Computed example of a mutant assay.
Amino acid sequence: MTNDFEHNASSDVKTPRREKTIGVSRRRMMLYGGAGLAGVAAMTVGGRVDANTQQSAVAQQVSAKPEGRFAGKVVLITGATSGIGEATARAFAKEGATVHFCGRREALGEKVAQEINAQGGKASYQKVDVRQEEEIKAFIDTCVQKYGRIDIAFNNAGIESSPNTVAQQSLGDWMNVMTTNATGTFLSMKYELPVMLKQGSGAIINNASVSSHVGFATIAPYSASKHAIASLTKVAALEYADKNIRINSISPGAVDTPMLRRAMAAWKLSEEQIANEYPIKRLVAPEEIAKTVLWLSSADPTCIIGTDIDVTGGYLTK
């Protein structure tokens, strides 16, 4: 999910009256540690530094390697102005790829692109709302016009839903989350695939979530949208497996981002409380998720088709 959509829950969510003592209630973890923030983490600024005020720690790493393992490759990423998307864009550029990415927050997008280019990488940003079919089409057309092809696509853009029971959930929130997450991923693939078919190869990675495997109370739109992404990934993988196009997904858990930090502050939760819900006993860094995306995009996993990679730190094995 990315990274490019503003958090729409933490500012207006009230702490439940009965959940004031030490330890993390199941409800809180459903909203923030397990699903809400497992998926939300995929939408936010990398590291612990707010991208609106400072450079992220990622931006200060070593310069790009023009002859890296993705040299000559063109990578398309939705939702890469912050969070996992940003970390992945920087990682691909560092390994020699040309990255074309989108997001709704123009200032952040231009900033990320400028930083990547200043470090010797190749990146371009385009303002796009993935809910709009014409904007997705224009995004992909622009990438092909500028760079001639799309070798790898990471469909990462998304948002989380406000916490409510199904009966209390508004249709507007349901439609916004489903359209952004599920329909946005569908539209991205709809226009990426013809490009890859024409060139005879490609790799697509969709950002699903721990919430695409487990049901979490009070986040029905988000959970349903992520289940849809996981299913869509499998269907498309079967359709294009014999066309030299590999399609897979990843499922992050609690990733350390400013959005997670804001939610922790709002709910008065410590890093230790959230980390203890995960077997790994720590938060995952956006750069760790990026490494998995790069591996799935590389020449190594040639027979991995329609698979979802658990990057939760062990949550799904419990």
Rank of each mutant, 00 (worst) to 15 (best):
G33K: 01
A153V: 05
Y125P: 00
I309R: 03
G96A: 15
T81P: 04
G47Q: 06
A285M: 14
A290H: 06
D50T: 01
A236P: 02
M259R: 09
S211D: 11
R131N: 15
Q61D: 02
S223A: 15
P301A: 07
M259A: 08
S10T: 10
E115G: 14
T98E: 05
A263P: 02
G85F: 06
W267L: 15
G202F: 03
E6G: 03
Q126V: 04
V311P: 00
S161I: 07
G202V: 03
S201H: 13
A203S: 15
S297P: 04
Y125T: 03
P66T: 03
R105D: 03
E133C: 00
A182K: 01
S298Y: 04
L37V: 04
S56D: 10
L260C: 06
V75E: 04
A208H: 10
F5Q: 04
I289D: 04
G121A: 09
Q199E: 08
G200L: 12
K122C: 07
F186Y: 13
E134M: 02
G72V: 04
K281P: 06
K198D: 05
A285V: 03
F70D: 01
N181C: 14
L197M: 11
V49G: 00
S251D: 09
F101P: 08
T88N: 12
W174Q: 10
S298V: 06
P221R: 07
I205F: 05
Q54K: 09
E135Q: 15
E6N: 14
G96W: 07
R105K: 14
C303E: 06
